[in-house]
Amino acid sequence: MTDANDQVPDPTTLDPQIAALLKRDDQGLVAAVVQQHDSGDVLMVGWMDDEALRRTLTEGRVTFWSRSRQEYWRKGDTSGHAQWVKAVRLDCDGDALLVSVDQVGAACHTGDRTCFDARVLPATVGEPVSAD
């Protein structure tokens, strides 16, 4: 039996303490960088609102908000290439998430393992300057 003063968490909303830490864009979204938990490979970037984050934290599979389709999508439901949550971290500003996953199959819609395989931009390689 619960006391009248006990607050039972609502399983259909994001924990208010977590929600208070988020710094959302104008559409109410936070960037979610998805990384393979054991190799450290960056697999993809998606977007989450409070509901997508709640689902990700409570269901063990990654859910995103599709800006183009204006709907939720759980990675792997149609492709079979699921992302199983291992950890979720919030950056120091509260405006980006790092989602560590066990990726089954390709992470990219093109069939590549990551969304960052195909195009490497020319860049000058920098070297740290010694403080000596």
Rank of each mutant, 00 (worst) to 15 (best):
D3Y: 08
D3K: 13
D3E: 10
D6P: 01
Q7H: 15
D10Q: 07
T13A: 12
Q17R: 12
Q17H: 13
Q17Y: 09
I18L: 10
L22M: 03
D25R: 12
D25W: 12
Q27I: 00
Q27V: 00
G28N: 11
V30I: 14
V30T: 06
V30G: 05
A32P: 06
A32E: 04
V33I: 15
V33H: 09
Q35E: 13
Q35P: 02
Q36D: 15
D38K: 13
D41N: 12
V42A: 14
G46M: 08
W47I: 04
W47H: 13
D49Q: 06
A52S: 14
A52F: 06
R54S: 03
R55I: 06
T56I: 06
T56G: 03
T58N: 07
E59L: 10
R61W: 02
R61T: 12
V62R: 08
R67F: 11
S68M: 06
R69H: 12
Q70A: 14
Q70R: 15
E71N: 13
Y72T: 03
K75R: 09
K75N: 05
D77F: 08
T78V: 10
T78M: 06
S79G: 11
G80S: 08
H81L: 00
Q83W: 09
W84S: 06
K86W: 01
K86E: 15
A87N: 15
L90M: 08
G94H: 08
D95T: 02
D95F: 04
L97Y: 09
L98Q: 13
Q103D: 01
Q103E: 01
V104T: 12
A106I: 01
A107L: 01
C108F: 01
C108D: 05
H109L: 09
T110L: 07
G111K: 04
T114G: 07
D117V: 05
A118E: 09
R119C: 03
V120P: 00
V120K: 15
V120Y: 02
L121E: 09
P122I: 08
V125L: 12
G126W: 09
E127A: 07
E127K: 08
E127N: 01
P128K: 03
P128W: 04
P128T: 03
V129A: 13
V129Y: 04
S130W: 10
S130C: 02
D132M: 02
